Simulated assay, not measured.
Amino acid sequence: MVDVLLQLSELVTMEGYGDWIRLVAEFTSKSLLSWQWASSSVYYLLGLWSRLVSSVPYLKGDAPSLLDEYVPKITEGFITSRLDSAQAGLPDDISEHPLDSVDLLQDQLDCFPYLCRFQYENSSLFIINVMEPILQIYMERAQLQTGDKSELSIVEAKLAWIVHIIAAILKIKQSVGCSAESQEVIDAELSARVLRLVNVADSGLHSQRCGELSKQRLDRAILTFFQNFRKSYVGDQAMHSSKLYARLSDLIGLNDHLLLLDFIVQKIARNLKCYTESEEVIDQTLSLFLELASGYMTGKLLLKLDTVKFIIAHHTLEDDKVNGSLIGLAKHDILGTLFGKCCRISTGVWAIYISIEKDV
């Protein structure tokens, strides 16, 4: 592949560059439409486009790169193709469901955020406009006593894809032509939609669907979002994120990282209570809890939360069974640093011990 970072300046001045970039864009669009068969091609094509947009700051001269024309189309085409795959209603028993393949998700979503952040305001607006009507349908279905399982599965699959995309975007901060403060505001706009979805997904009819694979995939996508959001905006990073929390306060009333952390812990608690039959959801939930408890800043912040104090006060090693696993919550008399340890015990089940040790 062309060393794009070093040669884009030369590439745009070459005769035929306009035709080349147009043909690559057309081939990419066709590959996205053929999502059933072209996953490998999409991986390499998104990698090429991400390298192109990442090289724009180093572009010299007046020759147009034409990326402003083609990248938004590729971005929208990728998102649309993922929703089309959900609309197709893939059976749950296929060997590799796109939302179950961690490697495939990572391959495609590692490159895609660079395209989104290339013209972040426009791409985020497209995501919001796509997500809002789907979320509205999901909210309405939550109020029903019963629902069409097939329809709900499709809606949840679409929402899972959107949440995975937003989570991937939050994982990186690089942006072309957009200030850091502007990025934070847009990050808040996208995050607010996911946080609203969390409450909807755990309410009404949807709270009774934990045994459905589509609901489990949606909650795993939400956990991935929390993992990426935490790394960027909770704990040590929060002091640099005033614009994000100011906007989140306007949109959903979460005005600092402590409130957001409590929101995450409440979701963790609900998952541990509801997903007793899903090893995948439980494992990812415990991994998120462990990340929070192990972090220097987030570990200390957890001690301030009433939710965590309640969990510690009301759980013992003998109390709870989650998916055949024991959740042990041990405590000492002296409050100090909260940390989590995951260990495999002799019976082969998993235990998470939340310990409170004296600060050194």
Rank of each mutant, 00 (worst) to 15 (best):
93 D>P: 10
95 S>W: 00
9 S>M: 11
31 S>Y: 03
104 L>F: 06
145 Q>P: 01
94 I>T: 07
80 T>H: 07
125 L>C: 13
157 A>E: 14
132 E>M: 10
166 I>Q: 07
204 G>Y: 08
115 L>C: 02
158 K>H: 06
266 Q>Y: 05
154 I>C: 04
104 L>Q: 06
35 W>I: 08
345 I>S: 08
3 D>E: 15
65 S>D: 15
295 G>C: 03
341 K>T: 14
123 S>E: 12
93 D>V: 09
46 L>R: 01
347 T>D: 14
81 S>V: 07
62 D>T: 12
334 I>V: 15
123 S>T: 09
218 L>F: 04
226 F>L: 06
83 L>N: 03
188 A>V: 02
279 E>H: 14
272 L>N: 05
149 K>W: 09
291 E>D: 14
66 L>D: 04
264 I>T: 04
317 L>W: 07
257 H>M: 06
181 E>Y: 02
128 I>S: 03
36 Q>L: 13
179 S>H: 04
336 G>C: 04
140 E>G: 04
312 I>V: 15
185 V>F: 01
64 P>E: 12
341 K>M: 15
41 S>V: 10
169 I>Q: 06
3 D>C: 11
289 F>V: 14
52 L>R: 01
234 V>H: 02
154 I>P: 00
332 H>N: 13
233 Y>W: 07
281 V>N: 01
175 S>F: 02
119 Q>W: 00
338 L>H: 02
88 A>G: 09
5 L>S: 13
324 G>Y: 13
324 G>A: 13
340 G>A: 13
180 A>G: 05
219 D>K: 07
147 G>R: 04
274 C>F: 12
295 G>S: 10
197 L>F: 04
234 V>Y: 03
316 T>E: 15
163 V>Y: 07
237 Q>N: 14
315 H>C: 14
244 L>E: 04
225 F>P: 01
51 R>D: 15
203 S>I: 14
130 V>K: 08
267 K>T: 09
115 L>D: 02
85 S>V: 10
122 N>R: 09
109 L>D: 05
351 A>Y: 11
279 E>D: 15
121 E>T: 10
115 L>R: 01
254 L>P: 03
134 I>D: 11
156 E>G: 03
95 S>C: 02
278 S>G: 12
196 R>I: 15
342 C>G: 03
117 R>Y: 03
294 S>M: 11
347 T>G: 09
